[in-house]
Nucleic acid binder design. Structure first.
Lengths: 142, 142
DNA sequence: ATAAATGATTGTATCATACAACTATTGATT
DNA sequence: AATCAATAGTTGTATGATACAATCATTTAT
């Protein structure tokens, strides 16, 4: 395996992640953690704290707090689980969906602007390779 | 511009960043912020708080604290600026360089493992597209 | 010489996260 | 049915990351 590619990737990934995180912070009304959680609920449907913690590789206390914050903002509803008196599902609300949608649009706009000089082939490759990386990580033992 | 690519990229970037951040947290003896700062000093040479803050798009108080923490660990030296009684340069130490090197190796190893089933072309493409993205962001007004 | 600007540090506050402790409910065992 | 063990979630506590504001000493401008 060509060590040079690895070094390039590592180096560029470091910069890339940094840039994304900074960009999200600056351009979002929705906090990073909120976006991630709302997105998860929107994509995968209602879920409890434990499940969400597993899906997002976070501690349940973290999810509990994040979900409570979102509930306060009425971005999610906390619905009792009819089969288990201890448990709840968090479900994204209409308002939550709206916030998520707007956050996404802002992200698309920014991406569109940044990638406007890329060829369609490059954009597609980028998406595909990112997807491939993410799939690889998903399949590994975390 | 094809909206679908944008959506794919946005989605995959979200997952990607999350995965990288989690992975770094789990596999590093060096904290994320420490790695970034050490890397910057290693690559660009000694610099003061203000310069580092600009380079890393962070507040000077943040850099001041991070640098002080690294100084405590003896990963960096704090050298008075001979031309300005207010200012200092932070310079990476031999120990700092060693820690950075080891952190990098760990990252290379992890990457090598994750990308072992990729073609060399894919790896190269990935690095190139990431680099291209980073360059685009660098050239934009942040 | 005085005032303004600047480099860095520190105070304070917010956000993100994890480990530990606790409570109420459920599941397993007797 | 009763008791014990496991579990879902919340809360306490602590650490790390970050930014805005305040402060101090030094440099620069007037």
């Amino acid at each position: 395996m060509n060590k040079e590619s690895l070094e390039t990737i590592e180096k560029e990934v470091s910069v890339f992640v940094r840039r994304i995180v900074i960009s999200e912070k600056r351009n979002s009304r929705l906090e990073r953690s909120a976006y991630i959680l709302l997105r998860q609920l929107s994509t995968h449907g209602p879920a409890g704290v434990k499940t969400l913690a597993e899906q997002l590789h976070l501690d349940i206390s973290t999810i509990s707090r994040q979900a409570a914050a979102l509930e306060n903002k009425q971005y999610v509803d906390k619905v009792p689980n009819p089969h288990d008196g201890r448990a709840y599902f968090y479900r994204i609300t209409e308002l939550g969906n709206r916030e998520l949608y707007e956050a996404k649009q802002r992200r698309y706009d920014r991406l569109a602007n940044l990638l406007k000089d890329w060829s369609e082939e490059e954009r597609e490759s980028f998406g595909r390779l990112l997807e491939k990386y993410n799939r690889t990580v998903s399949e590994e033992k975390l």
